[in-house]
Design a protein around this nucleic acid. Structure first.
Length: 273
DNA sequence: CGGTGGACCTGCTGGC
DNA sequence: TGCCAGCAGGTCCACC
C-alpha cells in the first residue's frame, strides 16, 4: 500500500495525536507478520511515554521515554489508526496499543507483509531493516551527483534502480512510474546510460512528485487511509499510473503498461526517452 | 557481481 | 450465480 507520501501523511497525523501519551498496554493478536513480532520485547514499551514520531523511508518511528523506538512498516496493506478504544477487534487488527482511557493505536494488516519492532535510539541506524537504506529523497544528500555515482556501470532498468531502497529510500511502484514520467525518462533505460543533465532531471522529478503527493496526503487507490481514517487525494493527479490506453497528458500518445521484475510500469513511449 | 522471479499473505475484480 | 485467474501500494532470498 503505502509509499513515502502515504507514510509521511500517517506520521504527521500520529505526531499530532500521540506525543505526551503513555503506552498503557500492548495486545498482540497475531504475531506472524513478515517477521514474527517479539512479544516480550514489545512489552518493554509499556509504561513509556511517547515523545515524538519520525519517519525513515517507509518506516514509521515512534520515539519513547525511557529511550526506546517503536518501528512499524506497513507492507502492502498495513494501516495505523488512532481513535477511541474499540469494543470489537477486526479480523486483521494484529496489534493494539492502549493509550489511556480515551485513545488507542491499532495496527491492521490483512496481507501481513508489515513489521513491528522495538529497539533503542542508539541502535536504530544499525537495525537490520534500516541499515542499508539509501538517503532520504527530500534531503540534501540526494543529488544528481549522488545518483550518477550510484548509477555508474549499472545495467539495470531505470525503474528498478528507483525502486532499489539502497539507492533511495521510500519510492515504491506508483511513484516510480509518476517520477519517470515527470522526468521524461524511459523506465527501460539502463541506469548507467544517463547523462548528468538527465540525472538532474530525475532528482528534480523525484522531489517534485513526492512533495506534491505529500501536499495531497498521498494516493488512495484501493484502501489506503491515514491515521484518522481519511483517504489521500493524489490518485486524481496520477498522470500515468493505472492509465493504460489513456492519452498521455503531454502529447496524447496512448499510455502503455509493461511488466518489469513482475511489477506493472506505466509510461508514454513517445515523450519518455 | 547483479538482476530476475518466486515466495510470503489476503482480498478484490473481471472474465467465462 | 459461481468459480478461478490475475492483480495489488513491499521486501527478501535463491538462483542464474
Amino acid at each position: 500500500m503505502p509509499e513515502l507520501p502515504e507514510i509521511e501523511t500517517i506520521c504527521r497525523g500520529l505526531a499530532a495525536q500521540l506525543p505526551g501519551r503513555t503506552l498503557a498496554g500492548v495486545r498482540v493478536r497475531q504475531r506472524q507478520l513478515r517477521l514474527p513480532v517479539d512479544v516480550e520485547a514489545l512489552q518493554q514499551a509499556v509504561g513509556c511515554r511517547i515523545e515524538r514520531v519520525g519517519r525513515r523511508g517507509k518506516y514509521v518511528l515512534v520515539f519513547l521515554q525511557p529511550p526506546r523506538v517503536l518501528i512499524f512498516h506497513l507492507g502492502m496493506s498495513g494501516r495505523l489508526r488512532v481513535g477511541p478504544p474499540q469494543a470489537n477487534d477486526a479480523r486483521h487488527d494484529h496489534l493494539i496499543f492502549a493509550l489511556g482511557a480515551d485513545l488507542e493505536l491499532r495496527f491492521y494488516d490483512p496481507r501481513r507483509f508489515g513489521l513491528c519492532f522495538l529497539t533503542t535510539p542508539e541502535s536504530l541506524p544499525h537495525h537490520p531493516c534500516l541499515r542499508h537504506l539509501g538517503p532520504e529523497p527530500l534531503s540534501e544528500a540526494f543529488s544528481a551527483a549522488y545518483l550518477a555515482e550510484r548509477g555508474r556501470g549499472r545495467r539495470c532498468p531505470l525503474k528498478a534502480f528507483l525502486l532499489d531502497a539502497t539507492v533511495v529510500a521510500g519510492i515504491g511502484n506508483i511513484y516510480a512510474s509518476e517520477i519517470l514520467f515527470a522526468a521524461r525518462l524511459s523506465p527501460t533505460r539502463e541506469a548507467g546510460s544517463l547523462s548528468l543533465p538527465e540525472w538532474e532531471r530525475l532528482r528534480a522529478a523525484v522531489q517534485q512528485v513526492l512533495v506534491e503527493a505529500i501536499a495531497h496526503h498521498g494516493t488512495s487507490i484501493a484502501d489506503y487511509v491515514d491515521s484518522r481514517g481519511q483517504p489521500g487525494r493524489f490518485q486524481n493527479r496520477l498522470r500515468v499510473y493505472g492509465r493504460e490506453g489513456e492519452p498521455c497528458p503531454r502529447d496524447g500518445q496512448s499510455i502503455r503498461r509493461l511488466v518489469q521484475a513482475g511489477r506493472s510500469t506505466y509510461y508514454c513511449p513517445r515523450c519518455q526517452r
